[in-house]
Design a protein around this nucleic acid. Structure first.
Lengths: 217, 217
DNA sequence: ACCTGAACACCGTTCAAGT
DNA sequence: ACCTGAACACCGTTCAAGT
């Protein structure tokens, strides 16, 4: 079983899935493959090229666009597919962002994905200009993620300890909101913070706004 | 001029402004201050606490909210102020995101900012639930940034070389869009990619959608 | 008690020595 | 020509030695 770029990337993705992106180092990959560190450099120019390969391995897993339906459904389904992929690889959104920023062009798989998404907007009746604004408006949500400021307010336990009084006094609005999220059973979302619901809420808010603009144009 | 946490943070921010966040290391900070590396550890527990301090130094520069105006104007102005601050410190958005994700609570200044922003929504007539969804919908835009996939399509030169034909063939929609951005003088945006315009376009799309939901509720 | 140099356990990558 | 060990220039942080 000779060393190959594919085997190196598979090992790197596995290391990242298990221990986060900080667990990915040339030395650890080589160790996992039973190989001397410098052997990797025959298949990968440097660590940046390795990270680019990891990005493309992930982005390539996103479902192809649906056919025979309207632009909004197609975009929506594709983004939700991207989100599912990214949820399986929590380290990937950060790496995608970093590598896209560092390169002059995004990686090939990201380019293919963007090309396809732009095409869906254009075929759906968006002008080039409105498509351009749409991409900026969707931002990172296009690729299935958007960094959340409060990550895991949803607790597994049923009663995750009330906020301490000095916190409630200093941050009354944050406290009110957290109490509503974690306690009120009759809330729109239900107990806990439903990330999937929130993601779709924001996504639909943007898509509906864009549809309104497209029809007005 | 004795060593202090403030002097350390100032130096760290300066290093990051000049050379990016990778230029910030305990060793380089100490060198810039003419001090042995371990001296920093009397004022800062470790590098994470240093990064937290840098985040708060930046977030603390955001203007306080306007008074005597409607919720939408207040939110809009505050976010645009945050954006101006973040543009002066391009490394900060990444560090804010990383540190917020790594901590159990956001840093104190970020907590104060969020408390204030939530209060503006609540005073503007948003229910707790709708406020919650609003925060998720705005996402990182709340703090004046949203990672862009294509960064600097706006060139300073007037005619930034047409895309090579093989790229135009493989990515026709991307090419069409880039040509429109860089060449068409009569475009809505004008030549080049106007990041400020795009940021406000997306921001207003979200705010208008939220206003529609608030009135419907 | 305080300060600090050396040391430890890492990192990506270069480069020359060995085959 | 190929492979690879040692080495280089970095990290954050521990810890014991020196004052």
């Amino acid at each position: 079983m000779p060393l190959s770029k594919e085997r190196i990337l598979d090992t790197a993705v596995e290391l990242a899935d298990d221990g986060g992106v900080d667990a990915v180092s040339m030395r650890k990959i080589s160790q996992a493959l039973g190989v001397v560190p410098m052997a990797l450099y025959k298949h990968v120019r440097n660590k940046d090229e390795l990270l680019d390969g990891m990005v493309d391995a992930i982005v390539g897993q996103i479902d192809p666009p649906a056919v025979d339906t309207d632009w909004k459904t197609t975009i929506r389904l594709r983004i939700l597919s991207a989100r599912q992929v990214l949820l399986r690889h929590p380290w990937a959104s950060r790496v995608i962002e970093e590598r896209t920023r560092a390169r002059t062009d995004p990686t090939p798989a990201v380019m293919d994905y963007m090309e396809s998404m732009i095409g869906i907007f254009r075929a759906g009746g968006f002008s080039v200009d409105l498509t351009h604004h749409a991409l900026h408006a969707m931002g990172s949500r296009l690729l299935g993620f958007s960094q959340e400021l409060f990550e895991d307010t949803a607790g597994t336990g049923p009663d995750p300890a009330p906020p301490p009084p000095e916190l409630a006094e200093r941050f009354p609005h944050i406290t009110e909101l957290m109490v509503a999220i974690t306690h009120e059973e009759g809330s729109v979302v239900g107990p806990g913070c439903d990330d999937q619901f929130e993601f779709e809420f924001a996504l639909d808010l943007l898509l509906d706004g864009l549809d309104r603009l497209r029809r007005a144009a």
